[in-house]
Simulated scan of single mutants.
Amino acid sequence: MSVRTAVPIAMRVSWLVLFALVIGEFVTDLPGPGWATTSLPAVVVFALMAATTVLQRRAAAPRGEPRPPVEVDPPVTGRWSALNSPADRTPSHGTHVYGQTYAIDIVADPETGEGAPPARPAFRWLWPVFRRNGAFPAFGLPLLAVGDATVVRASDGQRDHVSRNSLAGVVYLLLIEGNIRSILGAHRIIGNHVILDLGGGTYAVYAHVRRGSLRVKPGDTVRAGQALGQVGNSGNTTEPHLHFHLMDGPDLDNARGVPFTWRGVGVPANGETFTVAERTGERAGERTGAQAESRAAGQAESLPGERAAGA
Rank of each mutant, 00 (worst) to 15 (best):
I195K: 02
F274H: 02
W80G: 01
P74F: 03
G281A: 15
R58E: 14
I195P: 00
N84P: 00
P75I: 12
R223M: 12
V265Q: 00
A269S: 13
T112K: 15
V13H: 03
P33C: 13
A186R: 04
V205F: 03
F260A: 04
V97L: 08
F123M: 04
A60E: 06
A311C: 04
I9V: 15
L141G: 00
G34E: 12
A103N: 09
S213F: 09
W125L: 15
A297D: 11
P121L: 11
N233A: 12
A292L: 14
G285N: 05
L40S: 07
V276L: 00
D251F: 06
R256I: 03
A290W: 10
R307L: 12
V43M: 15
A311M: 09
R295L: 07
L184W: 05
G249Q: 11
R89V: 04
G99S: 12
A20W: 07
H241G: 08
S234F: 05
Y172M: 07
T273F: 01
Q100N: 13
T52I: 04
A51W: 15
H245M: 08
H208M: 11
P75G: 10
H208R: 14
V43P: 03
D105C: 06
M1Q: 07
T53K: 01
V22D: 04
F19C: 05
N270W: 01
T52H: 02
S39K: 02
P304F: 12
G94K: 10
V194H: 03
Y206N: 08
A207G: 05
G115V: 00
V13K: 01
R283M: 15
P41L: 09
T52R: 01
V27E: 03
L126D: 10
R188I: 00
G147T: 14
I23T: 13
G199K: 05
Y102F: 13
E301H: 14
S166F: 03
R4N: 11
L184G: 02
H243D: 15
I180F: 11
N192W: 09
L40Q: 09
G229C: 10
L21Q: 09
A103P: 05
P110F: 10
D29K: 13
D197S: 06
E306D: 05
A154W: 06
A297C: 02
F244H: 08
P91H: 12
R89M: 10
R215F: 01
G289E: 15
T77F: 12
R57K: 11
S302G: 10
G266V: 03
R215W: 06
N165W: 13
A292C: 04
A87H: 01
Q158C: 01
H208Q: 14
R79W: 02
D148M: 08
V17D: 08
G281F: 12
G178F: 05
F136R: 04
L144H: 07
A145W: 05
E272R: 02
G32Y: 10
R58C: 11
R131W: 02
A6I: 12
D73S: 06
P86N: 11
V17E: 10
F19N: 04
R223S: 15
D220P: 00
D73Q: 06
